[in-house]
Design a protein around this nucleic acid. Structure first.
Lengths: 208, 208, 208, 208
DNA sequence: AATGAATGAGCCTTCATTCAT
DNA sequence: AATGAATGAAGGCTCATTCAT
């Protein structure tokens, strides 16, 4: 409410923006606090007015990102009446705003790859929970679809859902890492949707 | 006249084994050369008799691994007469010996996440080529299958193949990172094979 | 708003003074950065705020010294109308402030004696040029003296001048290394001047 | 007498020769024991059968050199009847075999410049004594010449002699360091002899 | 609140020396 | 006697963090 508060929050954001940019360019370990200060156009000391340690920076960055993710997932839960539609929407959601995320992919890797850092930031734990959220969404939709006779009863919802989560992460990660042409990637997504969709509904109506 | 006889190759392997173990436990940056020396039960100086720098260790580790991979891929090329069988074999190959690989997954992440380290080791470049090898294998098999009328002509080989590569990497990575129960993962692989297989042959014989 | 105010130049000088003192006491290789930091009463890290490497220290020390030398030589060029007077003044200049220089003589030796160090510092190159400057001064004065009939035409200016340079360096160096009594050394200088002076004018007016 | 002894002595010499060569090329600090072993074509361990430490190598090298010097000086003492001739011979002696010495000049510098090393090797002490031997020789000859009326009584033998020693060292050192053309250097030596000779006999027969 | 000078713990690497063979 | 593999103490340098101004 007071101007001070606004200032502080804006400055925090400015620092985070600078940190994201420099981390993305150099990676976490290769980034010095001095680099971030320079990018944010402030003194090194000032950074420590807003973040107690270097580790707080990725902690905040990913905290915000995962928070945003979580919101989007919970929105999904309600938007679609038809389970198969909902699943397709879930797939699409995973590939939304991927370009923004591509930026920090190497940073995610570096943190997940460093036990100490990861423990302190809790990234892999948060990440796991985020995936689990998606997983639960898919499980629920598949089971609903099976109950409604719209999805083959032969497939195991927990197994298929978890497989789907891995698949989506794999495709998203490869897009982020290898910088596919958008058209080429879109075609891949289309192929995936097609394959998943036909598989879900396959043998519905088969006599058993 | 009789200098101390040492099996240098065995010692190199012992060091690499120690390095893998410590890297896996702590990550690359958090691992000190002293840690590796202690694990390998030798002096710090001895490490440098076998590897010029700390970076040489992951370089050797991944050099050996990717070499082994490459051999296995090239073997695949010939073993299967039926393209669809070959594709299934390719999928299975990607999930072979995954437990051994799981060990170093975080190390891969950390290196891919660090520009300097990656450049010096050349891991992402090697990794990309390895994936490209698999991609080419799938493309070739799909096209062969289409030529033989065993695979639907509707799908684009380059797009589907590349999607499959991303999918396989995603599933393998999630297995390595989240330590699924083997049965649970096997069921996922089964579901994937099932889905891919039906998609490849779908609408063969459809009148169009 | 008001950052810590520091006279960076003064601090640089303080570090150089400490470095000279410790180098003089122990020699370059035996001096640890920690020794210099202790002598300068600051942390090791602070040294690196002012000098990028250990080698920068002798580089700066000799840079400043040779700069001062060069100025003094160029002043000599004009101050004396009579060439013989100028030569005597040149000789005296070489023995001025010798006590200050005595301090770093062993350091000069150590650097000149170490190929790598010398290359990086460029000391022997600078030193050579400095001697060449003195040499040219003597050559010019001798030739002027010969043109004016004040110096024997029999002697070769380039040869005599270069000999004189070696002689002066030899005497200065011995003074610095063996710490002669000032009176004893002054008497040597006097003898040299006497000898050189009589030799320069010898056989002027001889009929030939 | 026994072949073993001869073998050992030959090997010691081989090691010293290798050491001189490598020290000359790289300087003392930059030379590793492994370099010397390689040059001498033997194992590192073997070096330590002949020399207890790295420092023993320059200690032996200079021990032998200075021993050879001392012999030559003492020979001078008797060879010349005329004091002025003897002094000229002394000057020439200082410039004999200079090319051989040029080889190790940087090594001498490096050792003289390092207090610890010098103390352990005792080089500067030995060097000082060697110079003092030459000094005493010149003093004796000058005084003899003065007694015989062949050298001006005006000059102080101790002062002139010591000056001469510094001069000779200066010229020899510059030859070794700056690699003058032999002719150019010979002409300098000639000029020096000429100057010294005329100065010694100057004003003999002056009325006083 | 903002700054950046100062700090020192910590790490990779070197290399003289040892010693088992 | 000869070897060279093994060792570990030591040093230059980095950089996250502190704190005086």
């Amino acid at each position: 409410m007071s101007p001070k508060i606004v200032d502080r929050e804006a400055k925090r954001q400015a620092i985070l923006a600078a940190a994201i940019a420099v981390f993305a360019e150099k990676g976490y370990h290769a980034t010095k606090m001095a680099d971030i200060a320079r990018k944010a156009e402030m003194g090194k000391g000032t950074l420590y007015e807003y973040f107690r340690t270097k580790e707080e920076l990725p902690k905040s960055i990913f905290g915000l990102m995962l928070e945003a993710f979580d919101q989007e997932i919970s929105q999904l839960e309600q938007a679609h009446a038809d389970p198969v539609d909902a699943i397709m929407a879930g797939i699409q959601l995973c590939f939304q705003d991927l370009d923004e995320f591509a930026y920090v992919t190497p940073l995610v890797f570096e943190i997940l790859g460093n036990k100490d850092l990861d423990r302190s930031i809790g990234l892999s734990e948060d990440f796991k929970q985020w995936l689990e959220g998606i997983n639960q969404f898919f499980i629920a939709q598949i089971q609903a679809g099976q109950a409604q006779g719209k999805i083959s009863s032969k497939l195991s919802a927990p197994i298929f859902a978890r497989m789907l989560v891995s698949i989506l992460d794999g495709m998203a990660t490869h897009y982020c890492m290898f910088h596919f042409q958008p058209d080429f990637f879109m075609a891949q997504v289309k192929a995936l949707e097609d394959m998943v969709c036909s598989y879900l509904v396959s043998s519905i109506g088969d006599k058993q």
